[in-house]
Computed example of a mutant assay.
Amino acid sequence: MLQHHIRKTRKLRPRLLPLRPKIVKLGRMEVMQMVPVRSSAITAVGYDAATRRMKIAFKQGRTYDYCGVPSEVYQGLINARSVGTYYDRVIRDRYQC
């Protein structure tokens, strides 16, 4: 009688990006960890829930800070089908520091 050997394999889960990046301390300076996003205009987004501050890095090389941003807006940006469109409709010209 032949024995069938079944090899157990682990299901690979897609790697999910963290919804809340960490604030990393480098000596006296705090650095916001940026999360890469798929966009033709934006490269990465960072968010500090304690201060409600969001940082957006654009492909042109500039980085902008936004203050008083609710976590729902940050999560909406990260999960948006079109990051650039969400930015234009919900964030641009709002949440100035």
Rank of each mutant, 00 (worst) to 15 (best):
M1I: 06
H5S: 12
I6D: 11
R7E: 14
K8N: 13
T9C: 09
T9S: 11
R10M: 13
R10N: 13
K11I: 12
L12E: 14
R13F: 11
P14L: 08
K22A: 14
K22Q: 15
V24D: 09
K25F: 04
K25D: 05
L26P: 00
G27A: 07
M29L: 10
E30A: 11
V31P: 02
M32Q: 13
M34V: 02
V35A: 02
P36Y: 07
V37L: 01
R38Q: 12
S39G: 01
S40L: 15
T43L: 08
G46Y: 05
G46L: 07
D48V: 05
D48M: 06
D48T: 08
A50R: 13
T51G: 02
M54K: 05
M54I: 05
K55Q: 11
K55T: 09
K55A: 07
F58W: 08
K59W: 07
G61Q: 10
R62Y: 12
T63E: 15
Y64D: 12
D65T: 13
Y66N: 04
C67R: 13
S71F: 04
V73Q: 00
Y74E: 07
Q75H: 15
Q75T: 10
G76H: 05
L77N: 01
N79R: 14
A80C: 07
A80G: 04
A80F: 09
R81H: 11
R81T: 11
R81N: 11
G84Y: 09
G84C: 02
D88T: 13
R89W: 07
R89S: 10
V90L: 03
I91Y: 01
I91E: 00
I91L: 03
R94T: 00
Y95N: 01
Q96H: 10
Q96E: 10
C97Q: 04
